[in-house]
Design a protein around this nucleic acid. Structure first.
Length: 575
RNA sequence: GGGCUACUAGCUCAGUAGGUAGAGCAGCAGACUCUUAAUCUGCGGGUCAAAGGUUCGAAUCCUUUGUAGCUCACCA
C-alpha cells in the first residue's frame, strides 16, 4: 500500500510545479498589452479597445470575480477550487466545472489579483460502482468498497485506476490552457495530513450530526461518528466505529471478519472524513474563496447546502459558489454520464473543436444554462460564430458597442494563452472542408494553395484542418462527404446530350483561368442550353462524373477551387 | 414534500448595474436561366407565460399563480 504513495507523483510536487506553470497566465495580460500590435489595416477599433484600460465587463466570469472580491474582501491571494472523484472516465460534463473555474481565475488575474487555482482529485473516496465502459469489470468488481486509489488500472498502463483517469485529464488540460495545482486526497489522507481536522470533526460530532439530520429522512444513529475507516485487514470501508477516546485513538470493527483494531489518527492511513464533512473541511484547510458545484449539490439538503452549515461548525466560511448546469451531446451516440457506458470526454471534443473553439463553447455560454455539445452540422455554425467573434475583436467586422464589448471579452477568454496580435486566417469551416476533400485530407496541399496565408497564421489553420478532417470523416452527414473520382473507377453511364455537355465543359475548363466564379457559372448554363439539356440534368451529370453523387458543392466555385489539373483528367475520360 | 432553472418573433435563442424590445433561421416581395442546411436586396412579425406590487419608468427588482425540466431528502 505504501508504495502507491511514494510512486504516485514523486512525492508531493504539486505546490511548486503548480504555481510555476500558473505564472504564465500572470503575465498574459501584460504581454499582450506590451506587444506591438500587428493588426490588419482596417481595425482601428481593435487597437483602441485593446489600449483602453480594462473596460467594465459584463461577462459572467468578470461578474463572479467581482463578487468574490466583494464578498471575501481584499486578500493577498484568492483560492479557487474545483475537484472530482476519479471514479470513472472524466467526461466533458466534469470539464465544464474545471473550465468555469479557470475562466473565473483568469478574470481575477486580469483584475490584478493573485490566485491559487487548485484541483482536487478525490481519489480516497470509496469505489462504489464499476462503470460500464471499463475493461475487465470482473476484476474491478473485486475492489468495490475499497478506496479508488487502490483499484488497479485494468488497462495495465498506470499504477492505479484513479491515476489512469487523472493522467488522462492532466495531460490534456494544458492543451486548452488550464493548469491548476493538483491535490491528491489519497496522498493527503494516507499521510495523516488531516489528523487534526478529523479530530475536530469528532469533537463537533453532535453539531455536525444535527446539521446533517436537518435534511435527512431518517436521522443518523446515535452512535454515528463523522469519520469512516478503511479496514486495515481488507481495505474496505465496511467497518463500524466502536469508540473514540476523545483524542486521537479510534477503535473500529471490520464488519466482514469481526476483527477489532484501534488506530491513531496521527499515523493511520485508514481514516477518512465522509464526503459531506470532507468538503467543508477542505474549504477551511485550503481557505477556498470560490468553488462551484453541479445543480445536484446545490439543492436544499444537497451536499453544498449541508457543507455551508458544517463549514461554520469547523470554524470557516463557505466559498462563493454558483451552480453549473449539465451538458448534453448532439450528433453523436453515447451518453455523457460515466456510469452508463460510452462517455464523451474532452479528448473527443478536441477531435472536432480546436482548443480555442472548445473554450469558446464554454466562455460564450452562461454556466447555469444547459447546452449541447454538437457533433452534427452545428459544428459549422459554432466555427462561424467563433470567426465572427474573432472578426469583431480585430475590428474586421462592425457591431454595436455593447455587442463589441461582449464579443471582445469572450474572444479573450477563449484563447488558450495570450491573445494573438492578429486575426487568424479567415476561412469558413465549410469551405475548408471542401478544400480538404479536394485534396483527400492533405492539409499541406490545402495550405500550399492559400497564397495569402501569413506564416503566423499557419499553426492555427493546421489545427483547424485536423479538426475539420476529423469531423468530415467521423461525424459529417453522408451528403457532405465526397471524393473526386479516380481514373480506375468505372465510367458513369450518361445520355448523349449529357456527354456532349461534358465535352463542352471540358473545353471550357481548358481555359479555366479566363473565368471567375460568376462567369463560369453562367457558362455552365450556356453549355446546358446550347445542348438542350435541363440545367439540373447537366449539374447532376457533372456531379456524377466528378464525385459519383448527384449533388455536391456549388459547382462553379468547386471547379475553380479544384483547378483544371484535377478536373480535366476526370472530364477527359468522357471525350 | 423541499429546492433550482426556464418561459422573449413561427423556430432556436441574445438581452446583469431598470431607460422606446434584438439576432439567426423560417416567412413575404423583388433580383439571379443557379443544385448544397450559405446567392443578393428589401419587408413584415412579439401584451417579453399570467396577475399584482415597487418605480417617473420593469423583459429586467419583489410577491403570487401556471407550465416545463432538473435536482435533493441514500452514497460520493
Amino acid at each position: 500500500m505504501r508504495q502507491y504513495l511514494s510512486q504516485q507523483r514523486g512525492g508531493r510536487g504539486g505546490g511548486g510545479e503548480g504555481s510555476q506553470s500558473c505564472s504564465s497566465y500572470g503575465d498574459y495580460k501584460e504581454s499582450y498589452l506590451k506587444t506591438p500590435l500587428l493588426l490588419p489595416k482596417n481595425c482601428l477599433l481593435g487597437i483602441i479597445a485593446t489600449m483602453s484600460t480594462q473596460p467594465k465587463s459584463f461577462h459572467w466570469a468578470d461578474i463572479y470575480a467581482d463578487k468574490i472580491v466583494r464578498e471575501k474582501g481584499p486578500k493577498e491571494q484568492y483560492t479557487c477550487a474545483s475537484g472530482i472523484t476519479p471514479s470513472g472516465t472524466v467526461h466533458i460534463g466534469n470539464f465544464r466545472e474545471i473550465i468555469s473555474v479557470e475562466l473565473i481565475v483568469r478574470a481575477l488575474r486580469d483584475k490584478g489579483h493573485k490566485v491559487r487555482f487548485i484541483y482536487s482529485w478525490d481519489d480516497y473516496d470509496v469505489f462504489r460502482k464499476v462503470p460500464k465502459n471499463m475493461p475487465k469489470p470482473e476484476v474491478l468488481e473485486t475492489y468495490l468498497r475499497k478506496p479508488i486509489t487502490l483499484v488497479p488500472d485494468t488497462n495495465g498502463e498506470y499504477s492505479s485506476y484513479a491515476e489512469s483517469h487523472e493522467q488522462a485529464v492532466e495531460t490534456l488540460l494544458p492543451v486548452v490552457g488550464i493548469e491548476p495545482e493538483y491535490l491528491y486526497q489519497a496522498q493527503k489522507y494516507r499521510a495523516s495530513e488531516y489528523a487534526k481536522e478529523m479530530r475536530l470533526a469528532l469533537e463537533k460530532r453532535d453539531e455536525i450530526k444535527a446539521a446533517l439530520d436537518e435534511y435527512r429522512t431518517t436521522p443518523l444513529e446515535d452512535d454515528w461518528f463523522p469519520i469512516s475507516v478503511f479496514s486495515n485487514f481488507t481495505d474496505k470501508d465496511t467497518t463500524t466505529i466502536l469508540e473514540w477516546d476523545g483524542e486521537w485513538q479510534v477503535t473500529y470493527r471490520d464488519d466482514e471478519n469481526g476483527k477489532v483494531e484501534t488506530i491513531d489518527l496521527r499515523n493511520t492511513s485508514a481514516a477518512k472524513l465522509p464526503w459531506r464533512i470532507d468538503w467543508p473541511m477542505r474549504w477551511v484547510y485550503e481557505g477556498v474563496d470560490f468553488e462551484p458545484a453541479g445543480k445536484d449539490h446545490h439543492s436544499e439538503g444537497g451536499s453544498f447546502d449541508t457543507s455551508k452549515h458544517i463549514v461554520k461548525i469547523l470554524g470557516g466560511e463557505a466559498p462563493v459558489s454558483f451552480q453549473y448546469d449539465f451538458l448534453s451531446i448532439k450528433g453523436r451516440g453515447g451518453k455523457i454520464s460515466s456510469s452508463t457506458g460510452e462517455v464523451i470526454s474532452l479528448a473527443d471534443v478536441l477531435e472536432v473543436y480546436t482548443p480555442e473553439v472548445t473554450r469558446y463553447l464554454f466562455a460564450s455560454t452562461r454556466p447555469n444554462t444547459e447546452f449541447a455539445i454538437s457533433f452534427d452540422l452545428d459544428v459549422l455554425k459554432i466555427y462561424e460564430d467563433y470567426d465572427t467573434c474573432e472578426r469583431i475583436y480585430f475590428g474586421l467586422q462592425q457591431a454595436n458597442e455593447k455587442r463589441t464589448d461582449k464579443e471582445r471579452r469572450i474572444f479573450e477568454l477563449s484563447q488558450v494563452r495570450e491573445v494573438p496580435t492578429e486575426a487568424s486566417y479567415q476561412i469558413p469551416f465549410r469551405h475548408l472542408c471542401n478544400l480538404l476533400q479536394i485534396n483527400s485530407g492533405d492539409s499541406d496541399a490545402v495550405i500550399a494553395g492559400l497564397t495569402d496565408l501569413l506564416p503566423s497564421q499557419e499553426k492555427r489553420l493546421r489545427e483547424r484542418c485536423v479538426c475539420a478532417w476529423n469531423w468530415i470523416t467521423n461525424y459529417s452527414p453522408e451528403d457532405f462527404r465526397w471524393v473526386l473520382r479516380g481514373s480506375e473507377e468505372p465510367l458513369i453511364e450518361l445520355s448523349q446530350e449529357a456527354i456532349k455537355g461534358i465535352k463542352e465543359l471540358h473545353a471550357v475548363v481548358e481555359h479555366l483561368e479566363e473565368y471567375d466564379e460568376k462567369q463560369l457559372s453562367e457558362e455552365i448554363y450556356a453549355v446546358a442550353h446550347r445542348n438542350e439539356i435541363d440545367p439540373p440534368e447537366l449539374f447532376k451529370a457533372v456531379y456524377l462524373v466528378l464525385i459519383g453523387k448527384e449533388r455536391g458543392p456549388k459547382l462553379a466555385g468547386f471547379v475553380i477551387t479544384c483547378g483544371k489539373e484535377k478536373i480535366l483528367p476526370i472530364l477527359g475520360r468522357y471525350l
